[in-house]
Structures are given as structure tokens and as C-alpha cells.
């Protein structure tokens, strides 16, 4: 039983590492995007002016760089950073054979689902081609799966969170 839990904990640790990598990549991309958007806003999105459909692009970017849009982006980046830290802590605990708490995994999953629903409603990830829609759906499912996997393993561990799994032969 305990041996099985150790295996599950190892698997959780691996998936947590995957989540950390994805979150770090997400944070880096989001930060660069926010800085670039600020830079483009300073020039009045001159890059898009006069291009076909440029006016729509500028309107969308202005919406994204509005105080509310920026606040949302910054809050999401901060939460992602906090999650990365939290996941590192979880990994540290798992290294010591201590069962981590499920909360950061739930937060990560809920936040991702929420952001996908928001994107869907706001129409910012709408793809014109059917191929694009399929790709977006597959990508979203993959990311949900990555976030669910540590939870699946963690839920199968009977030992309570914060307690150490006993090593047995």
C-alpha cells in the first residue's frame, strides 16, 4: 500500500514539474506581451495603422491595454508566479515523502478553465478556420489534462496532506 503511494507521489512530483515548466513559460510570455503592448500603446499602435483590418486590431489591442485589461493580466501573472512558488514547495515536500496539499492544483485548474471561458466569451481566441478551432480545442484539452494529472495521482494517495508516507519493504 505504502509502496504504491510512493509511486503515486513520484508521479505527482513529475507532473508538478511539468506544470512548473508550463507556468514559467506562460509567465515569461505574458510578461513580454504586457511590456510589448505597453510599448506599442505608446506609439498609438502605429504598426497596425493603415493595414487591412488594422483598425479592428488596434481596437482589440486598446481594449487589452485598458486599465482593466492590464490589471487582469498583471494579477494573472502574479498568481502564476505564486503557483510556481507553491508548486516548488510541493515538490520539496514530495522529495521528503510528505504528501502535498491539493489546493494549488485545484487553483491552477480552475484558473486555467476560467481563463479559457473568458477567452471564449470575449472572442479573443476565435479562429476563423475550422482547422484553427480544432487546434485550439486540442491544445486546451492537453493543458487541462496536464493540470488534472497531478490531482488524479494525489487523490489516490490515502495518507493525509502534510503527513509523511512510511517506507515499507
Amino acid at each position: 500500500m505504502h509502496k504504491n503511494e510512493s509511486v503515486l507521489l513520484k508521479k505527482t512530483k513529475t507532473w508538478t514539474t511539468v506544470n512548473i515548466v508550463i507556468l514559467i513559460i506562460g509567465v515569461v510570455i505574458s510578461t513580454i506581451s504586457v511590456i510589448s503592448l505597453f510599448g506599442m500603446k505608446a506609439t498609438g499602435f502605429a504598426l497596425f495603422q493603415g493595414l487591412p483590418g488594422g483598425e479592428e486590431a488596434v481596437a482589440m489591442l486598446e481594449e487589452a491595454t485598458s486599465p482593466i485589461g492590464m490589471a487582469l493580466a498583471v494579477v494573472l501573472i502574479i498568481i502564476d508566479i505564486a503557483l510556481v512558488v507553491w508548486f516548488f514547495k510541493c515538490n520539496g515536500r514530495m522529495k521528503k515523502n510528505i504528501v502535498p496539499e491539493k489546493l494549488p492544483y485545484y487553483i491552477s485548474l480552475v484558473l486555467y478553465v476560467l481563463s479559457q471561458v473568458y477567452s471564449l466569451i470575449s472572442g479573443s481566441n476565435v479562429q476563423v478556420t475550422s482547422g484553427g478551432i480544432i487546434f485550439t480545442i486540442i491544445l486546451a484539452l492537453v493543458f487541462v489534462w496536464i493540470r488534472i494529472m497531478p490531482l488524479i495521482h494525489l487523490r489516490r494517495i490515502i495518507t493525509k496532506a502534510g503527513e509523511k508516507i512510511q517506507e515499507t519493504e
Partner: peptide, 10 residues
């Protein structure tokens, strides 16, 4: 806060 910001943005 996140939900509020998302609602406002929408």
C-alpha cells in the same frame, strides 16, 4: 478579484 476583473473586461 480575478472574476471581477474578467467580468469588467468582458
Amino acid at each position: 478579484l480575478v472574476i471581477t476583473l474578467m467580468t469588467l473586461a468582458l
